[in-house]
């Protein structure tokens, strides 16, 4: 008799049949949007402003972000400081967030408004904000508190 293995006698492995139910659900992949949206400090600042209001003019937004970044009151923001932020919002960060479905941008009025993915991104921002972005968080929070008073 040969020593050939008998196929029928082979131990059947429990892991032999990959379960299709273990594939991640498509929803999980949307986390990409969150990372992309929050992957730059100016975009995080922008997203913080969405807690306060769901609609912003680009100029107001630029003023607010310039004030936060320079740690000065909004009234003290110079035209140069505002323009610098405005240009980077217009040419990079706003279109990126539009792409990710976080905001919409009306070119005629230069107004941004929250879109479908805003909720998801803001929830993530709220979660990570306290530990990773404490300075921004403090800025954004204290600003909101002032508004409430």
């Amino acid at each position: 008799m040969s020593n050939q293995p008998d196929p029928a006698g082979e131990a059947t492995s429990d892991a032999s049949a990959p379960s299709e139910t273990q594939l991640p659900s498509p929803d999980i992949l949307e986390i990409e949007t969150v990372y992309e949206a929050l992957g730059h400090s100016r975009r995080r600042y922008l997203c913080y402003t969405l807690f306060e209001d769901t609609e912003w003019s680009l100029t107001d937004l630029a003023t607010k972000i310039a004030a936060w970044e320079n740690d000065i009151p909004e009234q003290a923001v110079t035209e140069d400081q505002r323009e610098e932020v405005y240009v980077s919002l217009y040419h990079a960060h706003v279109p990126k967030l539009v792409d990710e479905g976080v905001i919409t941008f009306d070119e005629a009025t230069e107004t941004i408004t929250t879109a479908d993915h805003a909720e998801q991104v803001l929830a993530a921002l709220e979660g990570i904000g306290a530990s990773l972005d404490s300075k921004q968080e403090t800025h954004a929070r204290s600003d909101m508190d002032e508004q409430e008073q």
């Binding site: 240009v87 040419h91 279109p95």
Partner: peptide, 15 residues
């Protein structure tokens, strides 16, 4: 701020 169209983002993701 007058240089608007198109946004640079349409060419490349500068950040």
């Amino acid at each position: 701020s007058e240089l608007k169209s198109p946004p640079l983002y349409e060419s490349v993701d500068v950040p």
